[in-house]
Structure formats: structure tokens, C-alpha cells
Design a protein around this nucleic acid. Structure first.
Length: 389
DNA sequence: AGCTCCGGTACTTTACACAT
DNA sequence: ATGTGTAAAGTACCGGAGCT
């Protein structure tokens, strides 16, 4: 364009200043001007072509980069989808665990004695993806824990010296000792805090009514809970730092101590050698149910009364038996009956009163059915028949 | 010897069942 | 509805064991 502008003044100059010359050479001038114009135009086209070429090359490069970038994104997406699927499966496993805990199935995982776990259940557990993925990292920690605990146990209280083979089977992944953690990651730190919180917040069950339940809570753990024995071994007394928990634990330990002592020294209680823990528990449960002389007569004791009975050393050698000699009545009932007798003795009775008294004095096999607590007692009796084996 | 931790126990408070 | 008795849970204190 600049070149064409350059030519036009020349033309006007030639035509304007020298009209004679222009009239003499019109054809020659126009041809040369046309040539120059064409060359100029061609040059411009060439320039445009080169510009287009570079732009096409640039576009090709851009497209290639876009393609590579998209491929990378797709690859990342695919990997992310795989990971999500894996996590989803893991979540399904966790959900199954939660359902298991809620339905009571999961408690079998905590059955440290291994008495209640069938081969099929063991196989199912070992097939769990989540558990298996957790297993490796947890296993190393647990080995360190077991080593530390087994050494610590040598110097601890006699009660804490329960069979190490039971402890070795305690493999619940949630309750590794914080001190045994070797990872220094934030995740491991969070887990430590979580575990310590859970241990610090554990509260022994106040609603238990039988020695069997107390022993289960201590040795095996209740549904979805760690066993008290495991808490003791992993955290020492620190998990029960609250005064209420300490006191309650001390009372429960009177019962547990007796079970352990019966198992260790059966001859001390005129019981056969090699007695199992289950049988030791049954002996103490029988004592609670009627093999006792609480306040001078056989009484079906509460756990608190059993604690008093043992703590005050009110027990006698005759109380320890695998046979339940008498399924006694609760102290509350006995006291109430005694009070009624006293009031009736002050008011010499009618014939109906005599009958009532006689029926109380000789309670028949169904006498407790009229009791206000008969459903509970029925459950207890069922438990007793189970204990009698 | 002094300190801390822990278990044991007396005492108090609370909850519940039963009688009036 | 209120009073009473019993049992259980919780609190406070004491004493022993272990550590510095």
C-alpha cells in the first residue's frame, strides 16, 4: 500500500509538470506501472501467505497441546474414577462393619478367647478388603504393642497377668497403644488422639446384672467396645482417671479378681484342677444366685451386694461350687417378707393370713411368677439353666 | 523424707419401689 | 401425693507402694 502511494505522486507529477512527455510515452509508462503494481501485489500476497503459514503452524501446535492436555485430563479422570470405586468399596466395608456392630455380629471380632468364632466367620473376616488393607499397617503396630505389654505384664499386678495367648489373639485394630505408633504423620497423630479420647471416655456399663456379663465386659468386651482387660493393658489406670470410674472399677475388680483367683488356684476353693475361666465364672455366678449366706441366709445378690460379700470376706468355702444349690430370693423380697411377718405377728391373724404366710414360707416352684419382676426373673432363670449346663 | 499414684472404704446423694 | 426403706452410684479421705 505504501508503495502504491509512492507511485501516484510520481504519476501526477509526470502528468502535471510535464504533459508533453506523458503524451509522448503513454503506453510504455502504463506497462511499467502495471508491472510495478503487480510485483507490489504479489509481494503483499507472499507476505500474507507467510503470515497464514505461521498462524497455521501455531494453530497446529495449539491443537497438539490441547490434545495432549485433554488426554492427560482423561487419564487423571480415569485414575480418579478407579480410586473412587476403591473408596466406595472401602466405605461399603465400613458400613458392613457398622451394621455388624449394631446387630451384634461385630462383637465376635472382639471375642479374644476365640471361643465363639466359627471357621466360616473367620474366613469372612479375612476376606474383608478394608480389614485386609488395614491389616498390614496395624499388624506391625500390634506386634510392638504385644512385645511392650508382655514385658510390662511381668511386673504388673497379679490380675494383669492373664494368659498371654488370650492377649495375643486380641487384634482389634482400633485400640493400638499410642506409644507404640511409629508413624510420625499427621494421620497417625490424629489416630493417636482419637484412640486416647476413646479410651479416656470409656465408661463401664452400669446396667449389667450378672457375673457373666461383668466377666464378658472385662475379658471380651461388650458389643462394639474394647474389653476392660485390653484397656488396662494398653493404657494402665489412665483410662479410668475419673473418681467415679475408679471407684466403680475397684468394685467390679473384686468380682473379677475372684474369678481369676478361682481359675489360678482352684484347690483353694475345693474345686477340681484345670478349671476353665468359664467354669470359674459359673462358680461366682452361682454364689451370687444362691450359694451364699449373705446376712445369714441364702440370697440372690445384686452385683453390688456380691462386691460387699467378697470385700467384707463374708464368703465361706461352701459357697464355691459348680452346682447351684439354691436359687435364692433377692434381699429386698426377704426383708419385705420379714416385715410382713412382723406386722402379722403383732396382729394375730385370720385364716387367710395364715394361708398367705404358709405360702410364703413354702414357696412353690412357680411362686415367683406372681412377682412384679417376673419377666426379669424368667430371663435370669433362663440364664441359670444355661449356667447349669 | 517427701511426693505421687492407686486401691480401698466410709459416708453422702440419688433413684427406685412400696406403703400409706 | 407423700413418706419410708433399700440399693446403687458418686465423693472424699486414708493408707500403702513406689519413686526421687
Amino acid at each position: 500500500m505504501a508503495s502504491s502511494n509512492d507511485h501516484s505522486p510520481q504519476n501526477s507529477d509526470v502528468e502535471g509538470t510535464n504533459p508533453e512527455l506523458s503524451t509522448n510515452l503513454p503506453s510504455e509508462f502504463s506497462a511499467s506501472a502495471f508491472q510495478a503494481l503487480m510485483i507490489d501485489q504479489l509481494a503483499k500476497i507472499q507476505e500474507q501467505n507467510e503470515g497464514l503459514k505461521t498462524r497455521i503452524v501455531q494453530l497446529e501446535q495449539d491443537q497438539r497441546e490441547f490434545y495432549i492436555d485433554t488426554c492427560k485430563k482423561l487419564e487423571r479422570g480415569a485414575r480418579s474414577a478407579d480410586k473412587s470405586a476403591h473408596e466406595l468399596n472401602a466405605m461399603k466395608e465400613v458400613f458392613k462393619e457398622i451394621v455388624g456392630v449394631m446387630s451384634g455380629e461385630r462383637v465376635r471380632f472382639l471375642d479374644h478367647s476365640g471361643e465363639n468364632v466359627t471357621t466360616q466367620e473367620a474366613a469372612n473376616i479375612s476376606e474383608s478388603l478394608l480389614l485386609s488393607s488395614n491389616h498390614e499397617s496395624v499388624r506391625r503396630r500390634q506386634e510392638a504393642v504385644m512385645y511392650r505389654d508382655s514385658r510390662a505384664l511381668d511386673t504388673l499386678h497379679v490380675l494383669k497377668q492373664e494368659d498371654t495367648d488370650i492377649w495375643s489373639r486380641l487384634n482389634h485394630p482400633d485400640f493400638a497403644a499410642p506409644s507404640a505408633q511409629t508413624e510420625s504423620s499427621d494421620y497417625a497423630g490424629d489416630q493417636n488422639e482419637n484412640i486416647q479420647d476413646r479410651a479416656a471416655n470409656y465408661k463401664m456399663n452400669r446396667l449389667l446384672k450378672t457375673v457373666t456379663d461383668v466377666a464378658r465386659e472385662y475379658f471380651e468386651g461388650l458389643q462394639g467396645q474394647p474389653s476392660v482387660m485390653a484397656l488396662e493393658r494398653r493404657f494402665g489406670p489412665s483410662w479410668r482417671c475419673r473418681p467415679s470410674e475408679r471407684s466403680f472399677f475397684a468394685k467390679r475388680m473384686q468380682i473379677i479378681n475372684r474369678i481369676v483367683d478361682i481359675k489360678k488356684h482352684p484347690s483353694k476353693y475345693n474345686l477340681p484342677d484345670g478349671i476353665t475361666r468359664k467354669k470359674a465364672i459359673r462358680v461366682v455366678e452361682n454364689m451370687r444366685l444362691g450359694n451364699n449366706s449373705f446376712h445369714g441366709q441364702a440370697t440372690r445378690m445384686t452385683l453390688n451386694q456380691l462386691y460387699i460379700y467378697l470385700a467384707k470376706k463374708m464368703d465361706t468355702p461352701n459357697d464355691y461350687s459348680l452346682q447351684l444349690l439354691e436359687f435364692a430370693r433377692p434381699r429386698r423380697d426377704l426383708l419385705l417378707e420379714k416385715r410382713n411377718e412382723d406386722t402379722q405377728s403383732t396382729q394375730p391373724g385370720s385364716s387367710s393370713n395364715d394361708l398367705e404366710e404358709e405360702s410364703r414360707a413354702n414357696p412353690g416352684p412357680n411362686s415367683e411368677e406372681n412377682d412384679s419382676q417376673s419377666p426379669r426373673r424368667e430371663a435370669l432363670e433362663n440364664a441359670v439353666t444355661g449356667l447349669r449346663v
